[in-house]
């Protein structure tokens, strides 16, 4: 029983981080219709920005987070303006491939700037494990999880309560009408990339604290696809639920299926099996919009 509880709790922790990554992805998809395969690499860049600020410039952690966010925002704005905007309205294959191309460029640049080896963040949080009743969490999972939750709450508040957030929601809802109401659509597109990059950077820092950073960190980015498909590509609430569910599923698969297939990494593949099943049954996910085609 305690074992199950332990799996569930670590699943929720992993899931919270997945949810944060997925939200960045959904923000871009919702407002610009772009499937962002470079999410993982944006995370990696953000993690490296924060690491540089802490390990090289010896800034405190909070300042490093700001540096990472600012750096990521600049990258996001640049990418949107230079690469994605000329691609507006192109076929899905082109848009997918352009983000894949970007991810390759980012990976290469990171290798040039920071080298290929693993690095870890300086110790930031108290080392004492956090105990929740019978469940014990290592501190380097518990604290990053709290950062992820805080970031999600902040984002939700931004969308709900600010003028800009309202403009972004309006654009996602109906582009033409929003444009007619005087909302600057181009600014919204730009902003959604900035927001997505900042979110990805925070997620990158979180993942980096848990597992160390290297140019290969971006590979985590692939794990969000089961999450966003479950929740619905265009639903932020869905990203939250999807993240938690997939995190739990992954940990349960790791706990209970691994003994059946020892040493095979069944944990990594289980979410993708779930993804296929979801696509068969309900391709638009739990909370996504069902697309209706007309001629």
């Amino acid at each position: 029983m305690d074992e199950l509880l332990q799996f569930l709790v670590s699943g929720v922790v992993t899931g919270g981080i997945y949810a944060l990554i997925a939200i960045g992805f959904v923000v871009v998809y919702k407002s610009t219709g772009v499937i962002n395969f470079a999410t993982g690499e944006l995370m990696m860049l953000g993690a490296f920005f924060a690491w540089t600020a802490m390990a090289v410039a010896h800034l405190p952690f909070a300042a490093a987070l700001l540096v990472a966010a600012a750096g990521a925002a600049a990258v996001g704005a640049l990418v949107e303006r230079v690469v994605l905007r000329p691609m507006l309205g192109q076929r899905p294959i082109s848009i997918i491939m352009v983000t894949i191309g970007l991810s390759s460029v980012f990976k290469g640049i990171a290798q040039v700037v920071w080298g290929g080896e693993y690095r870890s963040f300086p110790t930031i949080f108290p080392r004492r494990p956090v105990e929740l009743g019978p469940v014990v969490l290592p501190s380097r999972q518990a604290w990053p999880f709290l950062i992820a939750v805080a970031a999600i709450v902040l984002l939700a508040a931004l969308f709900r309560f600010t003028r800009t957030g309202t403009a972004m929601r309006a654009t996602a809802n109906d582009q033409a009408t929003a444009f007619g109401m005087g909302i600057d659509i181009r600014r919204v597109f730009s902003l959604s990339w900035v927001l997505a990059s900042v979110t990805a950077a925070l997620a990158g820092v979180v993942v980096g604290i848990i597992g160390g950073i290297s140019p290969q960190l971006g590979a985590v980015g692939l794990r969000i696809f089961p999450v966003v498909i479950l929740g619905g590509l265009d639903s932020i609430g869905g990203a939250l639920v999807g993240g938690i569910v997939m995190g739990v599923l992954e940990n349960l698969a790791g706990g209970y299926l691994d003994p059946l297939f020892p040493g095979t990494g069944v944990k990594e593949v289980a979410p993708f099996v779930a993804l296929v099943l979801i696509l068969m049954a309900r391709p638009w996910g739990l909370f996504g919009t069902r697309e209706i085609e007309r001629l």
Partner: peptide, 13 residues
């Protein structure tokens, strides 16, 4: 290796 990544990505984009 990094140059290959960069050139490959830049070529696609």
């Amino acid at each position: 290796a990094p140059m290959k990544d960069i050139v490959f990505g830049a070529m696609i984009v």
